[in-house]
Nucleic acid binder design. Structure first.
Length: 561
RNA sequence: GCGCUCGUAGCUCAGUUGGAUAGAGCAUCCGCCUUCUAAGCGGACGGUCCCGGGUUCGAAUCCUGGCGGGCGCGCCA
């Protein structure tokens, strides 16, 4: 529709030029925007404002000339000049009504498009190391990453969800030693309790399971407890599997699934880390200093050079990171989105610099990053510092158990990733009924219940007849709903393109509000059969759009509440 | 100190890449259930869009300088 209007305006300007009434250069782009206030029509253009200077006439005068010269169109009921010189377009009612038919016809596919068709994209998210249960911060990553993946799927992309973690290394050693200490009956208060050991109660559970020979299975591994407190390596294997399993359960409760679990250790085992190192050395971007091997990342925009191999001989985390991303590239992902907490923003430049140094033809801005700001957790008016070592935890699972999957997902996905968010546990519990997600779900349930009432009253409705009577929908609240529904595909596309799922959440709240207002003001099950039919068609369309949007957020759409 | 990021109503947050009178929810106050679900609706109250300059027809939005919060700056991951 916007393209259509720019075409009309272009024609009008060309005609004015030809007639010599004005002399302006045709702009490269004519901007058409949606109006905020219904009194300003449906769409508006600022073209007269931007061209007034060049045309040497007042904007309103130019706008008047353009309007007079606009070709006749059945799509537009009227135009109007407003404010400093905006041209407001009022669309024909038939145009507005057609959205109802479109929604019902496309069903679950309404809002989807094919801009990503034939292309694959990898979304990496959560990527928590198996040293403890997932906390609220991971939850935000899980909600955002999964919603971004769903948005990409809705816009035609083929999406692979990936979870990367380290199953060896220092953190994992520490985990193993912590479990071992528990196996030996030690507690944090004991003298021989290892330094830096994890104190959480879950460590004790793992130790007990290990000692009693439990078979633990995670989505990507399965290990039996060996029962030997001296076998640190067996403890490590078992502990990693146990915590992976716990995380699986957390993710499952949250409605998140992964296609690939990628182990950092596999990069070492396959020789990919060394191969990456060799390539970097051969490419001539490395140097030795103080016994360590450095990569000159400053050549690629970093603010300081980075060590790859320590003077002691081991590799820093930086090198496997580069190897991992090179691996992603070699797997053929021309597009990769990494969803991470903002505390990792330092790695963005580093990893990209490392990839550039490989000279593998990887674009400079690859991979993409979506960094969410930190979640601060408040309880009893005080900030809860999350510390694995202290066992001070606000686990994702607790949250799901207490306020529910839907409310938690909505809460964590409904804010822009770039905004810090405060999760007040007490408030979340007290106000769980005031969570906007229920407001949206309630609108869906209400729409469903109207159809149940229809059956109860022994009435019937056909979509065909309902659509035939759409011209009877003349109330302001009905127009508002139809306008809002027509926007849905744009919202989905924008949210997908910008990796901002919160746009869908905000939109759904607005649509639900329009629906509730209409529901309160007018009876859908009117005595008038034709009007009833048309309103039921509108209700069915709203129900569909709400369901589609909630699905993008991974939130259920209940038929009754 | 340097880098990234954010700053909008008492609180939590939107604001469609520069548009018209800056919007929601919660909280507070006043109304609405013998009629399709009151987890709802209508109304009121509430603003120095952190501050100062700049760009232009027009700035919460872009540029610049401050102030304030968060995060990151290790041969830790």
């Amino acid at each position: 529709m916007k393209e259509y209007l720019t075409g009309l305006i272009g024609e009008a300007l060309a005609a004015l030029n030809a007639k010599g009434k004005v002399n302006v250069e045709l702009p490269a782009t004519i901007h058409i925007g949606r109006t905020r206030d219904p009194a300003h029509g449906d769409l508006a253009s600022n073209v007269a404002l931007t061209l007034a200077g060049g045309a040497a006439m007042p904007p309103r005068e130019l706008a008047r000339l353009i309007c007079a010269e606009l070709p006749e169109s059945a799509e537009i009921s009227r135009t109007e000049i407003a404010g400093p010189g905006f041209i407001n377009f009022f669309l024909a009612d038939s145009r507005l009504h057609s959205i109802v038919a479109t929604v019902l016809e496309q069903g679950a596919g309404f809002g989807c498009c094919a801009v990503g068709a034939g292309q694959s994209v990898q979304v990496e998210f959560v990527s928590a190391n198996p040293t403890g249960p997932l906390h609220v911060g991971h939850g935000r990553g899980a909600a955002l990453g999964d919603c971004i993946a769903r948005l990409l799927e809705a816009t035609g992309w083929q999406v692979s969800r990936e979870f990367y973690y380290n199953d060896e290394g220092r953190q994992i050693d520490n985990l193993a030693r912590s479990v071992q200490a528990r196996c030996r009956g030690l507690g944090p208060a004991d003298e021989n309790w290892p330094d830096e050991a994890y104190r959480g109660e879950y460590i004790n559970d793992v130790a007990k399971a290990y000692m009693s020979g439990v078979l633990t299975s995670a989505s990507d591994r399965q290990v039996q407890g060996a029962g030997d407190p001296d076998d640190l390596s067996a403890i490590r294997e078992f502990a990693v599997a146990s915590l992976r399993r716990e995380q699986d359960l957390d993710l499952q409760a949250f409605g998140v699934q992964f296609d690939v679990f990628f182990l950092e250790s596999s990069l070492h085992d396959s020789g990919a880390v060394e191969a990456t190192l060799n390539k970097l050395v051969c490419a001539g971007h490395t140097f030795e200093q103080d016994g360590a091997l450095w990569l000159r990342t400053t050549d690629f925009g970093d603010d300081k050079d980075r060590v790859m191999r320590k003077s002691g001989g081991g590799y820093t985390y930086f090198l496997p990171d580069v190897a991992y991303h090179h691996n992603k590239w070699e797997r053929g992902f021309k597009r990769v989105i990494n969803e991470q907490g903002a505390d990792h923003h330092g790695t963005v430049t580093r990893v990209r610099a490392g990839l550039q140094a490989l000279a593998a033809g990887i674009p400079e801005a690859w991979p993409e990053y979506v960094l969410h700001q930190m979640v601060t957790v408040m309880r009893a008016g005080e900030e809860v510092r999350i510390s694995k070592r202290a066992g001070n935890y606000v686990s994702l699972r607790d949250l799901i158990d207490e306020v529910g999957k839907d409310a938690t997902r909505y809460f964590l996905a409904a804010r822009a990733p770039s905004s810090q968010l405060t999760f007040d546990i007490d408030l979340a519990l007290v106000q769980s009924n005031d969570n906007p997600v229920y407001y949206i779900q309630y609108a869906h349930a209400r729409a469903c219940s109207v159809f149940q009432q229809l059956a109860v009253r022994g009435l019937t409705w056909s979509e065909e007849a309902g659509l035939a009577g759409l011209s009877l929908l003349i109330e302001d609240s009905e127009n508002a709903i139809m306008k809002k529904m027509a926007r849905y595909p744009e919202v989905v596309l924008l949210a997908a393109q910008r990796s901002e799922p919160h746009r869908v959440a905000i939109y759904l709240r607005e649509l639900a509000a329009e629906f509730h207002a209409w529901y309160n003001a007018h009876r859908i099950l009117s005595e008038d059969r034709q009007l009833r039919g048309a309103r039921l068609a509108l209700a069915a369309a709203v129900r569909q759009v709400l369901a589609n949007g909630l699905a993008l957020l991974g939130v259920s759409a209940p038929e009754s509440m």
